[in-house]
């Protein structure tokens, strides 16, 4: 579904090589996490995959089609929830706007908006403005907007980096539940090793800058994940320890 091959990005003005050679793929319906040491170009990678940033070399393909700009059936949840929602619109209007742009009939639009707001537990605040909600709730709005858009591929850029730990656990379970329900191919970028192991079917480990793929690790945990039991499995600890060592190595390489 998503193929990234030989992706390279050099920022011209600064002559910084952010990505050297990144190659991986994500099959339809998979949930894959990307981790790496801080400053390793995770966001650059995501922006290239999203078509927001032209790569210097290499290619990104979604369902076989090369990405040259934001693909029509791709949705993104950004880290900065406070800046990715329109403050002058209500929660409902925020979720609805992309659907209006798709020229979707009003009836179907209403169903999708109501359905996705209910799915993230925000049905009762549809007429509030985003700034009236807590950070975790704002990120739920952004997730609802992405889900209502019915994407083929969902990108998430460290979506829970700025919320507190409890909210974060809730949101992780929300993402898992939505992913199971919709089967949307998901690429989840995070700097949190635990989060990557908990959510992912696979974890792609990036090296320090200039970035290459260090490891493509299958997460062989039972498919049903639970904050308490999954995280206390010995295998969880093994995977976590392994990835931790990898990240330390990546940092040392620099």
């Amino acid at each position: 579904m998503l193929e990234v091959s030989g992706l390279r990005k050099v920022y011209e003005g600064r002559r910084v090589e952010a990505l050297r050679e990144v190659t991986f793929q994500v099959d339809a319906g998979e949930l894959v996490c990307v981790i790496g040491p801080s400053g390793c170009g995770k966001t650059t990678l995501l922006r290239c995959v999203a078509g927001l940033l032209p790569p210097t070399a290499g290619s990104v393909k979604v369902a076989g089609a090369a990405v040259t700009g934001p693909p029509p059936r791709m949705a993104v949840v950004f880290q900065e929830y406070g800046r990715s929602l329109f403050p002058w619109m209500t929660v409902r209007q925020n979720v609805e706007l992309p659907l209006k742009e798709k020229r979707m009939p009003a009836g179907r639009r209403g169903e999708l908006v109501a359905g996705s707001l209910a799915a993230v537990g925000l049905a009762d605040v549809a007429d509030a403005h985003p700034w009236q909600l807590s950070g975790g709730m704002q990120q739920r709005v952004a997730i609802a907007r992405a889900v209502a858009y019915e994407p083929q591929v969902l990108l998430m850029d460290e979506p829970f980096a700025a919320v507190d730990a409890q909210t974060r656990a809730d949101l992780e379970d929300l993402v898992l539940a939505l992913w199971r329900d919709t089967g949307v191919t998901t690429l989840f970028v995070t700097h949190d090793i635990d989060e990557a192991v908990y959510l992912g079917q696979r974890v792609i480990v990036l090296s320090g800058s200039p970035t290459v793929v260090m490891e493509d690790l299958k997460i062989d945990l039972p498919p049903e994940r639970d904050q308490l039991t999954t995280r206390s499995l010995p295998r969880f600890a093994d995977l976590r320890g392994h990835l931790y060592a990898q990240i330390q190595r990546a940092r040392g390489d620099r």
């Binding site: 927001l52 700009g69 934001p70 990715s84 329109f86 992309p98 742009e101 798709k102």
Partner: peptide, 16 residues
């Protein structure tokens, strides 16, 4: 910029 990127991702362009 984030809002601007959001518009690009969700096909909000032109007059809209």
């Amino acid at each position: 910029e984030v809002l601007s990127d959001t518009c690009r991702m969700y096909g909000v362009r032109g007059l809209s």
